[in-house]
């Protein structure tokens, strides 16, 4: 039985269907990524799953409990890392954990016993008594994650966990999330950061306009939606080159501004050919989840 099971979920705001018939099933121990451009409905889906807003249609069950009917009970065993840090600025790191644990009905002694391990997990043992304002962005994010673990949850929701972090902090966050997965936790994360999803998630769903448009493991999605090799070609000669040779070397061509994306199963002839051209520059790389994402959701700006 899936830990999180969403069937035909619907939610509209003012006539606009933000979630339009969504199906998601997340198994225990899985890391599931919900990907989508801004406004795709990711955050609304999380709010619905947590029972913070009522759906217009469909069914949600979380940890075997119906949502929203028993959302409160289900949240006893859920951890949430929101998109924007909402740590309590009036308290120290340690106090934040204590106060938050109380919301789960935990006794002070019980929480106090958990705090050292949580602070250590977040790498904040030496900053336990620092006020929140004195912590860096990465430290706040880690503390928010530690706070989400105060009730030892089975399922953890993370809404864009690494947005705004520097590469060091981001890689650290990924390591922490992997550690949680090895401990048997289940993770549902939203991100528009494809690399993150590719590294962490067993399975991802790409969402747009309130619907899931593709789902599978990152490798499966790459394999089934896109050619395995990508060569990005740019430089002053790119227009002439594309017209003359593009179709000989590429199975599919996308032109974005001054850059040509050349998708192919085999780039071994193309690369030496490009290498000899002084008017062109190129980048040859394997296809990534980001290529799939852009292919499926388009390249138009969403804001």
């Amino acid at each position: 039985m899936p830990l999180l099971n969403i069937k035909n979920l619907r939610k509209s705001y003012g006539g606009l269907e933000v979630v339009a018939g969504l199906d998601i099933a997340v198994a225990r121990g899985e890391c599931f990524g919900l990907l989508g451009p801004n406004g795709a409905g990711k955050t609304t889906t999380l709010r619905l799953a947590l029972g913070l807003t009522a759906p217009d249609g469909g069914e949600i069950s979380m940890l075997g409990l119906p949502v929203p009917a028993q959302a409160r009970e289900a949240r006893m065993r859920i951890g949430v890392v929101p998109q924007m840090d909402n740590l309590d600025p009036d308290f120290s790191a340690r106090e934040n954990l204590l106060i938050y644990g109380r919301y789960f009905g935990l006794k002070d002694a019980e929480i106090a016993a958990r705090i050292p391990a949580l602070l250590e997990f977040a790498g904040l043992s030496h900053r336990a008594d620092s006020p929140i304002d004195a912590l860096s962005g990465g430290m706040k994010r880690r503390l928010t994650l530690a706070r989400a673990l105060v009730n030892d949850p089975d399922l953890i929701f993370l809404d864009e966990p690494t947005t705004g972090l520097d590469p060091q902090a981001r890689h650290m966050m990924w390591q922490w999330l992997r550690r949680l997965l090895t401990q048997g936790k289940t993770i549902v994360l939203t991100t528009h950061f494809m690399e993150e999803a590719e590294r962490l998630c067993d399975r991802v769903a790409i969402m747009d306009h309130g619907r899931i448009i593709a789902t599978g493991s990152p490798h499966q999605l790459i394999r089934s939606h896109i050619e395995p090799q990508v060569v990005e070609v740019y430089g002053e000669g790119v227009t002439g080159w594309t017209a003359a040779h593009g179709h000989a070397f590429c199975e599919r061509i996308e032109k974005v501004g001054e850059t040509v994306f050349c998708y192919t199963h085999d780039s071994k002839d193309l690369v030496p050919h490009l290498h000899g051209r002084s008017d062109l520059r190129y980048l040859s790389r394997p296809a990534s989840l980001e290529d799939v994402f852009l292919k499926l959701t388009g390249r138009d700006l969403r804001d």
């Binding site: 009970e73 909402n86 919301y103």
Partner: peptide, 14 residues
């Protein structure tokens, strides 16, 4: 401003 309520609502409180 601080979104303290939002944080609390993610816990098992209404």
């Amino acid at each position: 401003v601080q979104k303290t309520w939002e944080a609390i609502l993610n816990a098992p409180l209404t």
